[in-house]
Each structure stands twice: as C-alpha cells, then as structure tokens.
Amino acid sequence: MTMTLPLARPQARPRPAATAPAPAPAPLAVPVPVPVPAAAARPNRAARLLVGLGLALLPWLVVLATTLPATTTVSHWSLAWVGLDCLEAVGLISTGVLLRRGDPRRCLTAMATSVLLVCDAWFDVTTSAPGAEVASALAMALLVELPLALFCARLAVRALPRG
C-alpha cells in the first residue's frame, strides 16, 4: 500500500538577530612613519631652488647698480613700449572674457595683468624726463595704472580656488 503525504512548504529558518559590529581596535599609541613619495619631495626642491635663485640675485643687483651707465641709447625703444602695452591689452581682454564666463582661470590672467601694470607704471615714472613728462607719468601711474593693477590683483585673489 502506498501512502501519499501532502508536501509541506519548507519553512524559512529564523534569521539570527542582527548584532552590532565589533568596535574597531584602538589605534596604536606609537605613530608609524609613512614614506614620502618622490613626487611629494619635488615642491621642497623647487622651493629651495627658487629661494636660492632669489638670493643669488641680490649681489647681482649691487653689480647692476654700480656698473650700469646713467644714460644709454636704445634702438628698439618704441617696440619695447608697444610690446608692453600690447601685453597689458591682451591681459585685460582675456581677464574680462574669463570673468564673463565665470572661468576660475581668470586668477592667472588677472595677476599677470596686475604685474604688467605695476611694471608699466614703474618704468613710465623712472624713465621719464624731469618736468612735465615725469608729472604726466606720475599722474598716469597714480590715477590709472596702479588702481587698475590693484583691481586686477583683487580679482585674482577672489578667483583663487578655495580649498
């Protein structure tokens, strides 16, 4: 005789109760030295190189101050000034375009333009003939070039990435 038993569904096993994860082991009291990769050491070398080069320029300034002639004739005078003013125009235009686009790279062009404007003011004043020419150069420096340089420097600092 054969007997047929109804198949019962297997019952789900009860899941074990969730337990809190074990706490992490306490950190070691002794710090472990971490090796510095070669790439991280490069900024230190670059910093030392830049400071060394800057210090090397100091004696050179004395040499220049004592050996340069008081006056000289320059054959490409107009080219030098037109070139400087051209660089200033490119800097102002590119900074304005990048500012309009909201591009953070404007900090680079703004600072470069600021430096160019300060150099322009310096050389305008120091190379001007006494009298009306130096007065005009001072007026341009104080009323246009240096305020614009400060404005560009402020733009540059404000555009620096925050980190």
Rank of each mutant, 00 (worst) to 15 (best):
A39K: 11
P31C: 03
P59R: 02
T71K: 02
A38L: 12
A22P: 02
T66K: 06
A24T: 10
W77A: 03
L49M: 06
L68P: 00
L58Y: 00
V32G: 07
A18V: 07
V36K: 10
V51T: 10
V36S: 12
A39Q: 14
V74N: 04
V62Y: 04
V63E: 08
A46L: 14
A40D: 15
H76P: 00
P14H: 09
R45S: 06
T66G: 04
R42S: 09
R15M: 09
V51F: 06
T67D: 09
T71W: 00
L61H: 07
A24S: 13
V34S: 12
V63S: 02
W77T: 02
R48D: 08
L68T: 14
W77P: 00
V51S: 07
R48N: 12
A47G: 08
R13Q: 14
L50A: 15
A29S: 15
S75I: 06
W60P: 00
V63I: 11
V62T: 11
A46M: 11
V36F: 02
A26Y: 04
A26E: 15
T66F: 06
P16D: 04
P23D: 07
R13H: 08
G52M: 01
L57T: 14
H76K: 01
L49P: 00
T66H: 05
L57E: 13
L28M: 13
P33T: 08
L49C: 03
A22F: 02
L58C: 10
T72I: 01
A18F: 01
N44Q: 13
S75P: 00
V62R: 01
P27Y: 07
L68W: 02
A24V: 09
A47P: 00
L55S: 05
L53T: 11
P43V: 01
G54S: 05
A46E: 14
S75T: 13
A18C: 08
P27L: 01
A22W: 05
L68R: 13
A22H: 10
L64Q: 14
N44D: 11
P25Q: 10
A38V: 13
T67L: 04
P43L: 03
P31G: 07
P69A: 03
A20R: 13
L49H: 06
H76L: 08
A24K: 12
L58F: 03
P59S: 06
P14Y: 02
A46D: 12
V74K: 00
W77F: 05
L50K: 07
A41W: 09
R45K: 07
A40H: 10
A26V: 10
P25C: 01
P14Q: 14
A41C: 10
P43D: 05
P25T: 08
V30S: 13
R48F: 06
A38D: 15
V51A: 11
P25D: 09
R45G: 04
G54V: 00
V32D: 15
R15S: 09
R42D: 11
R42V: 15
P35M: 11
A40Q: 15
P27Q: 10
P27K: 04
V36H: 08
A41S: 14
V34D: 14
P31M: 07
A56F: 02
L57W: 13
